[in-house]
Computed example of a mutant assay.
Amino acid sequence: MKPTDRSGRGRHAKLVGAGIALTAVPAAIYYAAAGYAGVGPDYLGLGLGPGPHPYMHAGSEASASLDMLRAARSVAAAHGSRFDRRVMVTGFSQGGAAAMALGRELQRGADPYLRLGALAPVSGPYDLRHAQIPASLTSRTTLAPKASVFYLAYITVSWGRLYDLYDSPSKVFESPYDKFVEGLFDGTKDQDTQIMPQLPNTPIELLTPRYRRWLLHPSGPLLRAIRSSDGTCDWRPRVPVRLFAGSGDEQVAHTNTLSCMQALRAHGAEPQFVDYGPGTAHMDSLTRGVPDTLNWFQSLK
């Protein structure tokens, strides 16, 4: 998709998926400064949206992104511009998986006008069941335990609301966290100053043994919840795809990207992979990924 000014000359557009540790606004401005129409969506329950955020729910992340693209077209038209139909999609962390989900919907024809142009997700949790969750719970993990605690708490509260995982917080959270963890994720609290200080340092301190076993061997409502996030790489994009990640990521397991690569190839796609290596932490992959995705998109013109 590219906006055209009144002279009729076009520019590509880019959709930026926001991750949990990233507001999309700076990245969208970065792309816009290069001549793109940068569109940064809020997911449901974030920004000014009502209700709690359904964290790691691919369907709502994709639909929210489509809604933002449609709104952007309306705003552009009100200012005398129009969009080319091709959308260059990228996203970081949570937004990486959301980017894959959005790309799939665009290719399926979810919008009669918009078309997928290219995909460049960065460090996304594409495979919770086989990559992210096992890496978060094993004692041999390379992930930072405190980060895993945050993400596991967030998905548990979110999926509890969506899929009725438990009838009492004490079934999944150890004491005393069962008394207040749900309230930490009501959408009004800051991650760094209000949520993280109240969480324990390891998943074992946070989650009951029964629930940890269930996470590793999901069934019933928990399996449905995980499937609502996983599978975003189980399709064959008909556009260029380049994945970005670093094996030194301490928050999102590197095996997520390897799993996504494998799934895409199994469907006949030929994705490229930029591996930032063992010295690249999670936020470092964002710092490197934003300019690298821009350069790559520009090379596809």
Rank of each mutant, 00 (worst) to 15 (best):
P218N: 02
Y163D: 12
L258W: 07
W235G: 01
F173Q: 00
L222R: 00
S170N: 06
H282N: 06
P26T: 00
E270S: 14
L264Q: 05
G183K: 13
L215V: 06
D249G: 09
A281Q: 14
Q272F: 11
C260Y: 11
S74Q: 14
Y166T: 06
M68R: 13
A147P: 05
A76Q: 10
P218F: 01
P145H: 01
L300A: 07
Q94E: 15
M283R: 13
L222V: 00
F273K: 12
D167H: 12
H53N: 08
L216T: 01
Y177T: 00
H12L: 14
A37H: 09
V252Y: 03
A32V: 10
T188Y: 14
A281T: 15
L66A: 04
G49T: 03
Y154Q: 04
Y30E: 05
A98G: 08
L243G: 10
S285D: 03
L15D: 03
R129P: 10
G38T: 04
A225E: 10
P26E: 00
V122S: 07
H53A: 09
M261Y: 13
R115I: 06
P52F: 08
E182S: 12
S170G: 04
V241S: 05
A27P: 00
T280S: 10
P291F: 03
G96W: 02
R73L: 12
A18F: 02
S168D: 14
L66T: 05
K189D: 14
A58N: 05
L102I: 01
S158T: 01
R108G: 10
M56Q: 13
G19Y: 01
A99Y: 01
S229F: 13
P218Y: 00
G49I: 04
G248Q: 11
R288N: 14
F83T: 07
L264I: 05
P221G: 08
P221K: 06
Y126G: 02
L66R: 01
E174Q: 13
D284R: 10
H79F: 14
L162M: 09
S63I: 12
A34S: 05
P240M: 04
L114G: 07
R265A: 10
E105Q: 03
A77N: 06
G231I: 03
S285I: 04
Q251Y: 09
P291N: 05
Y113V: 15
L243D: 06
A58I: 01
A64M: 09
H267N: 14
A21T: 15
V241Y: 11
D164M: 08
M1V: 13
V89P: 01
L286C: 11
M68W: 12
I226N: 06
D292K: 02
G47C: 07
L152P: 00
P50I: 11
D190Q: 15
V149P: 00
M261D: 13
P218D: 04
Q262F: 13
L199I: 03
L15F: 06
P52R: 05
G117H: 04
T232Y: 06
K146M: 03
Q298I: 12
D292G: 02
V16M: 01
V241L: 10
W159S: 08
P134Y: 08
N256E: 09
Y166K: 06
R129L: 08
A77T: 06
I204Y: 14
M56G: 09
G187Y: 08
